[in-house]
Amino acid sequence: MLRQQLAANAGSGEELSGIAGWAVDIMTALGPIGVAVTIFLENAWPPIPSEIILPLAGFTAAQGSFTVAEAIIWATVGSVLGAWMLYGLGRVFGHDRLVAIAEKLPLVRGADISKTTDWFNRHGSKAVFFGRMLPIFRSLISIPAGLEKMNFVLFSALTLAGSLIWNSIFVGAGYLLGENWEAIGPWADVLQYVVIAVVVVIIVWWVVKRILENRNTPTEENP
């Protein structure tokens, strides 16, 4: 069984388990199409880390189950299909509905959505392209693109290009590292932690700023 072979090559007496074992089972059953399936699910559910699945696909390719080119191509197919699904959800949900919900949330204003919209309209192409190469944002960037009805062909082309770069790096690394494919994990974790830290800092700054603004805004006195 492939997962036993991978564990043996990695010098472990135990079979792979968790997400790695799950991904191997899908790749074993479906071949390179299994890579597309796992990456599609990673887009739909961001907690599934592509930083594990892609190097594992590269290592699996190194064992001769399929070629590294097939792994990259099918991973990119899965990435685009997953992005299309989230884009569609954003488009169905719509900008106006998001503004209406924002108005009902504490510390949030409809103007905040408008500012975000303006930013996305100015930088949306770069956000989609480079967002495909950042943990967490890889999946989530598709939603605002749908909300703002970004041109579908442009969105698809940028998603394809960004995903192809990301997938090639991680699949290729897994292929070249062979039995040491897991060594990619710590480096990918560092990138993810940096992204999370930046997001947390921005959120904390925004919340503090909004609280101070609300405190400094005079309230109307009841007659």
Score class of each variant (00 low, 15 high):
L6I: 15
I19V: 15
N216V: 01
G64R: 10
F93N: 04
V92H: 12
W22S: 11
N214I: 07
G110V: 02
N216A: 13
V35K: 02
T60L: 01
G21Y: 06
S12F: 10
G146R: 04
G174W: 00
D25L: 15
G31K: 12
G131L: 00
N180L: 05
V77I: 13
V37I: 13
S79G: 08
K209D: 08
A57W: 03
P144N: 10
I73L: 08
I211G: 01
M27W: 09
A102H: 07
G18W: 12
L30S: 14
Q192W: 13
L98S: 07
G94D: 11
A44T: 14
P135T: 04
A71D: 07
L140W: 08
V37N: 05
N121V: 11
G78F: 01
E70F: 02
L191T: 12
L164P: 02
E51F: 11
I101S: 03
W206Q: 09
G18S: 13
F170I: 01
W22T: 12
E182L: 14
E179I: 04
N167G: 07
S125M: 10
K115S: 12
I211L: 04
L105I: 11
Y175E: 03
V200H: 10
G88P: 00
G172S: 08
T67S: 11
I113Y: 04
F152M: 10
S17R: 15
I26F: 00
A127G: 03
A75L: 09
W22N: 04
G78L: 04
M150W: 10
V108M: 05
